[in-house]
Design a protein around this nucleic acid. Structure first.
Length: 844
RNA sequence: GCCCGGAUGGCGGAAUUGGUUUACGCAGAGGACUUAAAAUCCUCGGCCCGAAAGGGCUUGUGGGUUCGAGCCCCACUCCGGGCACCA
């Protein structure tokens, strides 16, 4: 078969007939089958992308043949640092490069044989698209969910822009792997923390890959604890150093998840940028030393802090805190092991119950007071091994730091209380507050780059001076009026970032000069652009109505098609895209823009394809280019081979030789068409009929569960079977092609149309809109089975027997078998285990 | 350090969730066709003993539960991924 010609022909015919375009208004069973859209670069589609797309498409085709009106859109996530960096690398302007990449990507995406609804394609850099990205920003601002704030943020020195916490992976920039540093900058944030609880709880109600849910749960990082105030006293204010004196009502509030250990708090630690340091400066006797430490800490990057590992710190001499549980006067330290952005930026240190505090206390020779003892060991000791484990635990306790729960000691009236219970009793006793704390931080949305949607905000100095503004908390700031959207990204020659902390757009007065929407004085436009992840956080909404210029999408269509029924993509987006998209869906729902608050009912993460056991990378030169394989073997063969390598959700190892098996398989599928019986009445033998139905069942179930590798294996087994028949009924062959259709769409259609006498090809004629084969449960069960006969659990024989035989019948059969008799005698028979239609085991 | 996965022939991987380990495919060996090669077709392939029938061993290691364990439990080793001073 000439693959290239067939593929070309069907791409044309399918598109002309609109085989993969659902009827948006009239669809009876809408099924939104979505695949994460790619970031394009002219290097083109990677075999890993194709792997993901194919897996998604097989599911879509399967659902379509099961009678659903499947919508499988495609587009490009072409705005953002990724595309811009690539453009810079090849010395091209991002806007021009986008056009080149677009062409290349769409060419490849058409080649891989997916049933895309091309009419609804979109690109995030298209002004008709980003108009609505900006509109969303405006809504966020108006609802108090977008705000500006100066704080220490992540800065990538290579990309020359700030990054969100989610885009810093292990201290490195997610895009270019450069070490990220801290910078104090005023930036735009989205208040995702407001949705922390909802984002966490609603994980329960969605059907998503488990590992993604776990990653999100960890990222949100909920912990229950207490806020406790430690009053400060100052020795300089009084001659009586031991007693100290209080200055006004200064206190440090700390957050802890272990208020039960309060009596063991022997010092407190503030993060170096804690605001109270400034307030009590005058009372610090070793101010110079403290200031030096603060400076040093600021200079350190996250990496250096990690590498150093050893704890550092400085005592605020002259200042003490009062432990509210026992009124003890304890020292106050600062250290960079306490994070400014979490809790209150201050902790109580309980070295006996926290490994980090213990390490710190050891280094600076601070007191350790044990307050929790593990529950008596004997209660968990059941056998010798437990005893050994118990011994280990004792050792850990002897190591003076025990982080578990247990029974309190040295804790005043709370001594001997269960530590879990004591948590809230002690909190109450010292007048603390229960507090739920999240690890999640707000989403930093501004980027100091060119290739993105300009943030649609205007700053008016005059209004700011007068204390006016669209929102009270941000004087001077106004959203661009809806009628003025989109704020078009101008074509500028000098688009490269310079690392000055502002976007290249800030060099173009033509762009940033604006009129205040309120007072009409000369004002300044925001020159930063928004994060690419905002573009992709809502694209699934736009697909259903991409040409709508009046509203972001039609509510009527949204109600029909949303939320997305099946979403497939990479697990690397667990706490990036997949978190942002859920956040915005919840916001939209609260704004009454949509009727749902989870965007994707079902999400499955595909696995990773490696090459000859190693990760593919350009530097290793082992990147598989799908174009070559498609040219040589055809798209069908590559699709099927990719799916055959291993379980879709786990990925697999690509070996060049492996595709030959699939090529042979497809050639044989064509070859057996010569054996199709001339007579339409011809049927299958009973055993073949059973086998066919078993195969339909397995392939249906495996495809539904994304176990494509075993579905293909069953197709092969079925083909092997059909090859042995002298002739094949036409209906059986058609059934086979239908089962094959999602996997090898071109060849199956070509062979299917051999029977067609029509001159023209219409939508309804396509194999891909035919009805998926059904299996008859009665026909799945065979009459006979192989009875496994065991003696003492060892297989001694297998005997063909009739299904449904009784234990007595089975015993009688087994006892006739010579080999079985060799190993057993009836006298010492202790027990007989019988598993109907499976096995009989004689225990001696 | 913590949290998830995983370890099965020469290789990619199957195994009805406790019931014949190694399906399907790749690679390999032997044969048929051919002047020859490729392609195709047929046969054989876990390891050890055996001519065969058959037997013994075998799912990273060690133990346990069970009539029976790749699958369940305990301890450990190695590999991959995520988080990482989050109090």
């Amino acid at each position: 078969m000439k693959y290239a010609a067939i593929e070309k022909k069907w791409n044309k015919l399918w598109r002309k007939a609109g085989v993969f375009e659902p009827d948006f208004k009239r669809a009876k069973k809408p099924f939104y089958n979505l695949m994460m859209f790619p970031y394009p670069s002219a290097e083109g589609l990677h075999v890993g992308n194709m792997y993901a797309f194919t897996g998604s498409d097989i599911y879509g085709r399967f659902k379509r043949m099961q009678g659903n009106d499947v919508f499988e859109p495609i587009g490009l996530d072409g705005f953002g640092i990724h595309s811009e960096n690539y453009a810079m690398k090849v010395g091209q302007h991002p806007a021009r490069q986008a056009k080149i990449s677009e062409k290349n990507f769409y060419r490849q995406l058409e080649m891989i044989g997916n049933g895309f609804s091309w009419n609804e394609k979109l690109e995030t850099y298209d002004p008709t698209y980003y108009k609505w990205t900006q509109w969303i920003f405006v809504q966020m601002f108006k609802h108090g969910l977008a705000y500006r704030k100066k704080k220490a943020v992540n800065w990538c020195p290579s990309c020359m822009t700030v990054l969100a916490d989610e885009q810093v992976i292990g201290g490195e920039c997610e895009r270019c792997l450069t070490k990220v540093i801290n910078k104090d900058l005023e930036q735009w944030f989205f208040r995702i923390t407001k949705y922390a609880e909802k984002l966490l709880n609603d994980l329960e109600k969605i059907d998503w890959s488990g590992k993604v849910k776990i990653a999100q749960r960890n990222w949100i990082g909920k912990s229950e604890g207490a806020l406790i105030r430690f009053p400060l006293v100052f020795s300089l204010l009084t001659s009586d150093v031991n007693k100290g004196a209080r200055m006004g009502n200064v206190a440090v509030e700390i957050f802890t998840t272990r208020p039960d250990t309060l009596f063991g708090a022997t010092y407190i630690v503030l993060s170096p940028d804690h605001e109270i340091i400034e307030k009590v400066k005058a009372q610090i006797s070793n101010l110079k030393e403290v200031e030096n430490y603060i400076l040093d800490a600021k200079k350190k990057t996250a990496e250096e802090r990690e590498e150093a590992m050893e704890k550092t710190g400085a005592e605020l001499k002259g200042i003490y805190a009062i432990n509210p549980a026992n009124q003890e006067k304890i020292p106050v330290w600062i250290s960079d092991y306490v994070l400014a952005g979490y809790g209150t930026g201050a902790i109580m240190a309980v070295p006996a119950s926290d490994a980090r505090d213990f390490e710190f206390a050891k280094k600076f020779n601070l007191p350790v007071r044990k307050v929790v003892l593990p529950k008596p060991l004997f209660s968990i000791v059941r056998n010798a091994e437990d005893l050994a484990a118990g011994a280990k635990q004792t050792l850990r306790v002897a190591g003076e730091c025990y982080e578990g729960s247990g029974e309190l000691i040295n804790s005043g009236e709370f001594s001997s209380m269960d530590s879990e219970k004591a948590k809230w009793e002690i909190t109450k006793f010292v007048g603390g507050k229960r507090k739920t704390q999240y690890r999640l931080r707000d989403w930093l949305i501004s980027r100091q780059r060119y290739w993105g949607p300009p943030i649609p905000m205007i700053y008016c100095e005059k209004c700011a001076d007068a204390g006016k503004g669209e929102r009270k908390e941000m004087p001077g700031w106004y959203a661009v009026l809806a009628k003025d959207l989109p704020v078009k990204l101008p074509y500028i020659k000098d688009f490269r970032p310079r690392g000055s902390g502002v976007s290249p757009l800030a060099r173009y007065p033509k762009f940033f000069k604006a009129k205040c929407p309120k007072c009409s004085s000369i004002a300044r436009r925001e020159t930063d652009v928004s994060d690419t992840f905002l573009d992709s956080a809502w694209y699934y909404l736009r697909y259903i109505d991409p040409k709508n210029n009046k509203e972001i999408f039609s509510d009527k269509l949204a109600r029909k098609w949303l939320p997305v029924d099946m979403y497939i993509g990479g697990a690397e987006h667990s706490v990036l895209h997949l978190l942002y998209v859920r956040f915005l869906a919840k916001v939209f729902n609260d704004m009454k823009l949509t009727h749902f608050d989870e965007p994707f009912l079902k999400f499955r993460a595909h696995g990773l394809i490696v090459k000859d056991g190693a990760k593919m990378s350009k530097s290793k030169g082992n990147v598989v280019n799908p174009d070559q394989f498609i040219k040589k073997f055809g798209a069908d063969a590559l699709r099927m081979y990719l799916m055959f390598i291993g379980p879709f959700e786990e990925g697999g190892d690509f070996r060049d030789q492996g595709i030959l098996g699939i090529t042979r398989f497809l050639a044989r599928v064509e070859k057996i068409s010569l054996k199709i019986s001339k007579s339409l009445k011809a049927g299958l033998s009973e055993s073949s009929e059973i086998f066919l139905h078993q195969s339909i069942k397995k392939i249906t179930e495996d495809t539904e569960n994304l176990r494509y590798n075993t579905a293909i294996s069953q197709l092969m087994i079925l083909l092997n079977h059909l090859e042995e028949l002298p002739e094949i009924p036409r209906k059986t062959y058609e059934t086979f092609l239908k089962l094959l259709a999602p996997y090898a769409p071109y060849i199956s259609e070509e062979l299917y149309q051999m029977f067609s006498r029509k001159k023209t090809f219409g939508k309804k004629d396509s194999l891909h809109l035919s009805v998926w084969p059904k299996y008859n449960l009665k026909k799945v069960i065979e009459e006979s089975f192989y009875l496994v006969v065991q003696v003492n659990g060892r297989v001694r024989s297998t005997i063909k027997a009739k299904r449904g035989i009784s234990q007595l019948e089975a015993e009688a059969l087994a006892k006739k078998d010579n080999n079985v008799l060799k190993y057993m005698s009836t006298e010492n028979l202790k027990k007989v285990i019988f598993v109907p239609d499976k096995l009989i085991n004689f225990v001696l």
